[in-house]
Design a binder for these strands. Structure first.
Length: 466
RNA sequence: GUCCCCAUCGUCUAGCCUGGUCCAGGACACCGGCCUUUCACGCCGGCAACAGGGGUUCAAAUCCCCUUGGGGACGCCA
């Protein structure tokens, strides 16, 4: 078989939303899995709504997700010559014709058809008139009136449409700009696309597009329609269901790999496996494991998966994505061993990077500020002596690792006859300012000898000056 | 209204094609318990589904039909 060529064709009328990202992902994964090619095409034939800002936003989102393309981005707005060339062919062969019906007339036709209990459609008034090109005329496809058109969908199976359900749809608008159904087909043909994977909502467009391929006498690509993503009320996912844009998820602290993992599992499965790395996805993704029914976007499952990815990823990968959140919180951290250690203490306790950043803040400043209730409860005079002893012990400890740190504690516990818990909680407050933090030995090691002693001494001072 | 698609725990899903191994498995969420220096992680256990009705068959979650429910499409948007 020929090399698989897939594509993702967003229209630049807004940001990239999660549904679109999922479609892109399916196409990208399939191309990567088959070692085929993945093409990016911007469908900007709607001059009214298309903007450069949207193009930029979409590219930015794709890049963040790590979905890369081999070809493009192509812009439909720059391909008018090609569309005209094919229109010429269709006109010449009699497969298309000019139509001068006005929008008002069309509206009337649709109304009539609907009242007659049928599907609103164009009645073919100009079909046999043999009209010439005139100002304001559109070009329509002369579609077959009888017979059926079958979509051989690789995901849903065969879908049969009665041709009399379809009408002579418009190829070229009165302003000479191609319509979606037409531009898509010409582009897919000229770009060598042989596998079209797209949302379920395009099923009804497919027979029209097939008719065009036939009129042009060009072999069909494989079609696969993936089920849609719904909101929690089972209606089409929209803003009122919460965040839609990919970048919003980035800003909430999700890892791109986690979003990808979640999105692909919504509609695709590989046995009971839930967690996939990017490479595993490429290795295991096939179209026959894509399901047929729509799925509901579930934030909680995304979070759980994000937590898993945070745990499983390398500290360096996590810290790279964590950095913006730390900066945002006014913290001047940088990539490196220290940050890696910090991440290691928090990766099992963070569902998002945002959460992780909050939990990591105490590591950085020179002086910690104590949570009021925490200091009142734990930084009492009775802890002064243990703290002082601990400072002495720690000062003489060179190997500042979790394991080695246990010894000074034992010593202090013996000398003061205090249980570990009695020391740990005050120490936690002295070091982190809070009563909740990673394990105390983890904090100790990550913070390092110098900072630990400094913070302990400051705590002693604080208690004594009260 | 017309056409198209879909239907397993609350949610994502395995199983369905190639009926019996399924009084239906996993995951998220939820509820218990264990671990424990806080919070988490982890571990153990629990709750919870084949939409309904007809067939076919010795046997149906699995095959067929109908009903119901949900979704999508009907634009000189994509």
């Amino acid at each position: 078989m020929d090399k698989v060529v897939t594509r993702f064709p967003p229209s630049p009328t807004g940001y990239l939303h999660v549904g679109g990202a999922r479609t892109a992902l399916f196409n990208w994964l399939y191309a990567r899995h088959t070692q085929g090619r993945f093409v990016l095409r911007i469908e900007d034939t709607d001059a009214e709504r298309s903007t450069q800002a949207s193009v930029d936003a979409i590219l930015e989102a794709l890049e963040w997700l790590g979905i890369d393309w081999d070809d493009g981005p192509y812009f439909q707005s720059r391909r008018m010559d090609i569309y005209n060339e094919y229109i010429g062919k269709l006109l010449e062969s009699g497969a298309a014709y000019y139509c001068t019906c006005t929008p008002e007339q069309l509206e009337e036709m649709r109304k009539m058809a609907k009242e007659a209990g049928g599907k609103p459609k164009y009645d073919g008034s100009c079909r046999e008139k043999g009209l010439e090109k005139t100002d304001g005329a559109v070009v329509r496809l002369k579609a077959p009136v009888m017979g059926t058109t079958v979509v051989e969908d690789v995901i849903k199976g065969n879908i049969v449409f009665q041709n009399d359900e379809l009408d002579d749809f418009i190829l070229l608008r009165s302003d000479g700009i191609p319509t979606y159904n037409y531009a898509v087909v010409v582009d897919d043909i000229t770009m060598g696309i042989n596998t079209v994977i797209r949302g379920d909502d395009h099923v009804n467009n497919t027979p029209r597009q097939i008719l065009l391929y036939k009129a042009l006498n060009i072999p069909l690509p494989a079609f696969g329609h993936v089920p849609m993503v719904l909101g929690n009320d089972r209606s089409r996912l929209s803003k009122r269901h919460g965040a839609m844009s990919v970048t919003a998820y980035r800003d909430m602290g999700f890892l791109p790999d986690a979003l990808l993992n979640y999105l692909v599992r919504l509609g695709w499965s590989f046995g009971d496996q839930e967690f996939f790395t990017r490479n595993e996805l490429i290795e295991k993704f096939t179209l026959d494991n894509v399901g047929k029914s729509a799925g509901i976007f579930d934030m909680e499952k995304l979070q759980a998966l994000n937590a898993d990815h945070i745990k499983a990823a390398s500290p360096r990968y996590v810290s790279k994505h964590l950095l913006p959140f730390l900066k945002e919180a006014g913290c001047e951290a940088e990539e490196g061993e220290f940050l890696d250690k910090v991440v290691l203490t928090l990766n099992a306790r963070s569902k998002t990077l945002k959460e992780m950043a909050e939990g990591a803040l105490f590591y950085f400043p020179d002086t910690v500020s104590y949570d009021e209730d925490a200091s009142k409860k734990f930084l009492m005079e009775s802890i002064l002596e243990p703290f002082k002893l601990l400072i002495d012990e720690l000062k003489s400890l060179d190997d500042f690792t979790e394991k080695a740190l246990e010894t000074p504690f034992k010593t202090v516990m013996e000398k003061t006859d205090l249980k570990f818990g009695k020391i740990a909680q005050p120490l936690r407050v002295a070091l982190t300012g809070k009563t909740v933090s990673p394990g105390i030995f983890e904090v100790l090691e990550a913070l390092g000898k110098e900072k630990v002693i400094k913070r302990l001494e400051k705590a002693v001072q604080y208690i004594e000056s009260r």
